[in-house]
Nucleic acid binder design. Structure first.
Lengths: 342, 342
DNA sequence: TTGTACGCGTTATCAT
DNA sequence: ATGATAACGCGTACAA
């Protein structure tokens, strides 16, 4: 129970004085305990706890030229997907005895840039980021300064850094293959805007599966959304409700779970049976997909592993001189639940 | 586009040399631009951008004795409640030109302690924490070292720091008052374990409302849960289903939204109408409460404001010598939706 | 085994 | 308006 009060926090110098040893000895106790005799060591350690000594990380970092820290700028802390990724990163960081500095850009490029700058100022050993725009030159600036960088859940062409992502096109494909297997021959793709790479890829995958099965283009209907939100999912439901029953799709593949939940909500309100009147597939398999009134079939991405791998890659780049950049692509999995199974 | 490569990152000294001025002048350009002539200033600024100069936060912190940083150790990053609180904190921090170091204890006391230690080592200006155990002496240790501390969403007796929380007892009361207003005379409290202060308070509030309305004790039935999870909510539903219809409660007040969603799911599966056969009130008003198949009535806590206030308080303690500790208690609000309204 | 001295990058003070 | 210098706390090479 240290009783320090009012005064400035104790430094190694104070500890040395209190223990009656030199400053270097205290440092040795901290960093090379073997080089110091047992008796002096315990004496120093007692002094440390009596003074409530706490190492000064700033001084250590300054001395070392870098801090024992990784930074992750996530796209949206409100999205469970990214918090799971962050947990994966953190686990790997912790295993390597590093701290993780978590930042949330909230989808705003400006804040992202600010945070990236902060991380540089802190001389973090590596930066992970799920960028608002993967093509932003800000990212290249970091690389050119020599800071290890890994992009998470995004890619771009001509990268000179590591990248960890999930195969969205394949995800779209397996979702639609599942619906085809269940006998659907007229379905909707609910999602947008297609300017988002992920959405476009998922749609492309859906088309792949559809045409391979020899089904007609006009039976894969696009119900556009302005954003990947629950509200947009509801709106999409209203749009589907406007279609005469005999021409209405019997299933919907949604670009993410939020849209799927919105659609499911609308379906409930309309009294549609799910999957009887409308089967629904979501994407992401967020925690609440399983918790929905009708548990939602969804495409799961290995979020945790995504984060772990990304962290491992930055750490490798930071420590291994022979590091070579990698583009890791994970494969998503379909989790089938009641919303597509009778 | 700085072209630095391989070499060490540039320092003020390098900038000074490149610009042909002294080190102090560079510092002035950085910190008191008014004290330096326009011509030299632009010259220095050019040198900085050419060298890709980035301030070294470690050195600044060392010099200043503290870093421009706040730390928040949250209880569970997977819980949207805490990410919202974190966003509130961050907003306030940003307004005060501070960075926020976000940590996630994941409900583990050990990790919490580790993070608190890290924050101390970084000499953060203030610590915010939603502790696993509000009575832990670790917290007092921080206070006794002189670091401003605020506890978020928890309280305890005999505090010598600031505290920001929400009146859970009142929350329980308004939830049950709402059900009484809707004509229910036999309801269930679904939640647990009661060893969690929040849960106990919400239950106590429910009892307050119940007895004040002159209803009988035995008509407020407790359906215990082992945890505040969706799965436990489902299990509670199964338990309710075992009760003969004429003795079954007509409404349930759940200790949080996860339980409520689980219960709602079970109700759907059973074919119960909500709220016809069973009205449901949740607690927290998480984003998915509104997105549920039957939008959920819930007790909303001012999460964002909670965070903002907490941050304001630490900042005050850190900067205002006349700071006095406060125990701020917010009042929750009932958000009525379809799950209790016909 | 222990002690001394220097430097990391920045800022503030003091002189010029 | 600008330059020189000391100090922040720590780690380490080197001397004792």
């Amino acid at each position: 129970m240290p009783m320090e009060r009012g005064s400035r926090t104790a430094s190694v110098k104070d500890v040395a004085a209190a223990a009656g040893v030199s400053l270097g000895t205290v440092s040795n106790v901290l960093n090379r305990p073997d080089r110091v005799s047992l008796t002096t060591r315990v004496r120093v350690e007692r002094a440390m706890s009596e003074l409530g000594f706490v190492r000064n990380e700033s001084a250590r970092s300054l001395r070392a030229g870098q801090s024992h820290t990784l930074g992750y700028v996530m796209l949206d802390a409100g999205n469970p997907f990214f918090t799971d990724v962050a947990q994966g990163i953190e686990e790997a960081a912790q295993a390597a005895d590093m701290s993780l500095f978590l930042c949330n850009s909230g989808n705003r490029a400006e804040r992202e840039a600010t945070y990236l700058d902060h991380l540089q100022q802190r001389r973090v050993q590596g930066v992970l980021v799920t960028p608002v725009d993967p093509d932003s030159p800000t990212l290249d600036a970091i690389v050119s300064r020599g800071t290890p960088l890994v992009i998470v859940d995004r890619t771009r062409r001509n990268v000179d850094f590591c990248t960890v992502s999930v195969d969205d096109r394949r995800g779209g494909r397996i979702a639609v293959e599942h619906l085809i297997d269940r006998g659907h021959t007229r379905i909707a793709f609910v999602g947008g805007p297609l300017s988002i790479g992920q959405v476009a890829d998922r749609y492309a995958g859906a088309q792949d599966a559809w045409s391979e099965a020899g089904l007609r283009d006009e039976d894969l209907i696009v119900v556009p959304c302005a954003a990947l939100t629950v509200a947009e999912g509801r709106a999409a439901g209203a749009q589907l409700a406007g279609v005469p029953k005999h021409r209405r799709p019997t299933a919907a593949f949604c670009a993410n779970d939020l849209i799927a939940l919105g659609l499911l909500q609308h379906a409930s309100a309309q009294g549609w049976r799910v999957p009887g009147d409308l089967a629904i597939v979501g994407y992401d398999d967020i925690e609440f997909a399983e918790a929905a009134a009708v548990p939602l079939t969804s495409v799961r991405q290995p979020r945790h592993e995504l984060g772990q791998t990304a962290a491992t890659l930055v750490l490798d780049e930071a420590t291994n001189p022979a590091h070579g950049h990698e583009q890791v692509v994970f494969t998503p999995t379909l989790i089938a639940r009641s919303s597509t199974l009778d």
